[in-house]
């Protein structure tokens, strides 16, 4: 069942997103709203990871191995370090947005499967988490729109 593959995917992707939020927040700590909001958004993803644990216990999680039929290039890599300056912040927020979109579409796919399986627990976790992923993406979008004019036109 490939659902197991996707549970593994979302597990890894949420963890990567949480870590990347923390990297970007710390790296741009001179912007206090970025620091503190990224910390809060990282905690959202932490919570999603935590809530996945009983799901993984039930379905199992396929990692890498001989018997795994996992599509190639499944996992996205996170942000290990930040860029500098106003334009750097903009690009880092864009990277977070790309990661967040992967998480969101993964939850969408899982929601579909959970409905097919009539798995109410999984459906609840996936819907709650998917809703919060939308909040993460909304903030990234809002913050990028606010930062863009100054960064692109007048920043040194």
């Amino acid at each position: 069942m490939h659902l197991v593959t996707y549970i593994g995917l979302v597990h890894r992707a949420e963890q990567t997103l949480a870590d990347s939020f923390r990297v970007v927040g710390q790296g741009h700590a001179k912007e206090p709203d970025v620091l503190f909001t990224c910390q809060a958004l990282a905690q959202m993803s932490d919570e999603h990871v935590r809530r996945l644990i009983p799901i993984i216990d039930r379905y199992g999680e396929q990692g890498h191995g001989d018997d795994v039929e996992e599509p190639e290039r499944l996992h996205a890599s996170g942000l290990a370090e930040v860029r500098s300056g106003p334009v750097g912040l903009l690009r880092d927020l864009q990277d977070l947005h790309v990661l967040g979109t992967l998480v969101q579409t993964t939850w969408t796919v899982i929601i579909q499967a959970a409905q097919g399986l009539r798995d109410h627990d999984l459906l609840k976790v996936a819907r709650d988490a998917g809703g919060e992923t939308a909040r993460q993406l909304s903030w990234l979008n809002t913050r990028m729109k606010a930062a863009a004019p100054q960064a692109l036109i007048v920043a040194r």
Partner: peptide, 20 residues
């Protein structure tokens, strides 16, 4: 009106970096 108006703390941030 392309983005939220800039708040005071951000204005001082832009003044700090010299873009204001």
């Amino acid at each position: 009106h392309w983005a939220p108006p800039t708040n005071a703390m951000q204005i001082f941030g832009y003044a700090e970096e010299g873009s204001i």
